[in-house]
Design a protein around this nucleic acid. Structure first.
Lengths: 203, 203, 203, 203
DNA sequence: GATGAATGAGGCTTCATTCAT
DNA sequence: GATGAATGAAGCCTCATTCAT
């Protein structure tokens, strides 16, 4: 609906710092006051700059949140990469357990921020939180490819898709629900679900 | 945050029709113009009533959406009940296939409305879309109880929770994603995931 | 601004009762919720009738308050008449003391109602609370006429005017002020003020 | 009920001018259209600014009027101070005549504005027009203290209270009444009332 | 006569955005 | 580059009033 590109490329360090401050403020305000409390004026104030400055870096309000979401996605993907990246050679049970644990850890970190950003992404039409999904799916798909011999599903695209969406579904819901299951039990059982799907058993 | 009870109980037929018109209009406006375009004035206009009338039945804007979501939840739950209710005695593969198919059908019906309402629920803090989850989980849990002998998981609460959230996760995502998988293949594979989790195999 | 005449003369007892109920409700709502809370709908509700009925007896909102104020004035004047009426033959000190005491008593009765109505009268442009002033002044003026020989002021119109307005000024203010003077002392001293004005002394 | 402090302290000259323009406009609109016609939009328009600007300096509508009343009180008190301040050493008859004349002059200045503001103060619950009363009373009380030897009343607090409220009562009423008495005669007789109270005579 | 659902103008207030300094 | 006062469209909501039943 509105151009997501920053109005000016922040090549200079000072400018980059300003942009960061704004995004940081946006996240904080989003968490503290919700969507409706997240006005550009408030964000600018929290960021310690004037509204005018904000508009020097972002063409409009939405662009701020698009950038924030973008940054959040990058962070999440990097996080997963770091945690799961070197699992390619690991045996399935280890890899799965690591992935599930990583995702849970991810949720534990900045719960509030994560939620607020997620909601805001929905609000905007969520074109971008999908990037996390896509990124994760690529990693999973690569893993499955390598281990294709040992697993049951034949359509690896579909399998990767379902794996990612079902694990995210289970973990997201577990965190949203009022009486969430115990972390350990959750991690164990989710891993079991995945392993049974891929192997037919979960020893 | 705002009382979800209608300001005035629509006892008369005329009033009930008015309330329905307003909810219908709310859904439509939500779909057509998004959150930010869904003003009470617009909703009233589309409903063919005046704003004043709207406010005679709802104490504030949010209450309209709360009611809409509530109604939507009721419909969804009723739909599932109707489709899955008499599956208690059915063998697992049949029951699972039916459930998965029902959920997919549910998504196909009023795609746009469903999405918009879902988003709006998030916006409001989603206290109520959980009702669908809870309702479904109760049904699933009851089924598992009956068939407890033939299945692997021992913690039925956890199992029910994961089943519902993972199936919803897979199907929701499949519908949100830009290049959704084929319906048939999706239903087949999701059923397989479930059956392998419950039985260890999916013949 | 709006015709103060009731739309229909309430000749029948039932109608008179309805009008009374409405005025009573108006007074109560005025006291309980202030000007801004005194809507016609609320008044009708408190009166136990429908808005429609209210509008059958009053052409508009203001008319309700005009009638209320009118009634209040009548009551106040009657009250004063009753308390001071037979003082014509009494000696000045007695008459003055009685008048002052009566006015204080008047203020003690229905403090809240009196205030609310007074404020509302100002709001409407106070054309009518003046009737109390005028009524009282007529009584005072008549008294002075009878006793003209024994008093100092020569312009009885002016004297009556000042007497009424200064006594009301002192007593009104005494009641509005946060730390009001003691009643007895107030009555004594106000009487003294009046007697000194009229006689030059206050024995 | 609403914070009377301006939302933003107008430190700059430009801002101070804006605030003044708003208050001026508020007074004018109050006079021209009455309470109910005094909407924030109208005030802003008359002030030559946008509503938004108004709300940058005042948190809500009432705050505008509170500020207006406050300013009015300050002006009135300053006016009285200027006219009566150096009367401390003056003999009673002179001082009284000056005070009475000053109060009448005060009423002559901006009759309409004074009235409208007074009414509005009532509407808001009049916590502040009392400041005028209190200020005046302090001055009067100080005067009485100095001249205590020559006057009859012994309770100076009570005497000061009654003096102020009775003079205000007489003069206010004289101005509100439809057929006000002649200014000169009024001033003379009011002075006489006061002097007789304080001295027992009014030569 | 009474009812109360419906009306809709209009009030208060917010906030994304601009632009003169 | 930065500032922040100013803008004004637009949103939410109320309430005096009407009229079909």
């Amino acid at each position: 609906m509105s151009p997501p590109q920053p109005r000016r490329k922040p090549t200079q360090a000072r400018a980059r710092a300003t942009v960061d401050a704004i995004l940081e403020a946006a996240a904080q305000v989003l968490v503290d006051r919700g969507f409706d409390g997240a006005s550009t004026n408030r964000i600018a104030e929290v960021a310690g700059v004037s509204v005018g400055t904000l508009y020097q870096y972002f063409p409009n309000k939405d662009a701020v949140f698009v950038a924030l979401i973008e940054r959040h996605c990058d962070e999440q993907i990097a996080l997963l990469q770091a945690m799961v990246g070197d699992m390619v050679a690991a045996p399935l049970p280890t890899a799965v357990r690591t992935y599930v644990a990583a995702l849970i850890a991810t949720h534990d970190r900045d719960r509030a921020v994560h939620d607020a950003i997620f909601r805001q992404a929905m609000h905007l039409g969520l074109p971008s939180l999908q990037r996390i999904h896509d990124g994760t799916r690529a990693i999973v798909r690569a893993y499955l490819e390598v281990h294709r011999e040992g697993i049951l599903p034949e359509d690896l695209d579909l399998a990767a898709f379902l794996l990612v969406s079902m694990v995210e579904g289970m973990i997201d819901t577990a965190f949203f629900v009022t009486a969430p299951p115990n972390r350990e039990a959750l991690a164990d059982e989710v891993s079991r679900v995945v392993l049974r799907y891929l192997l037919g058993h979960a020893d």
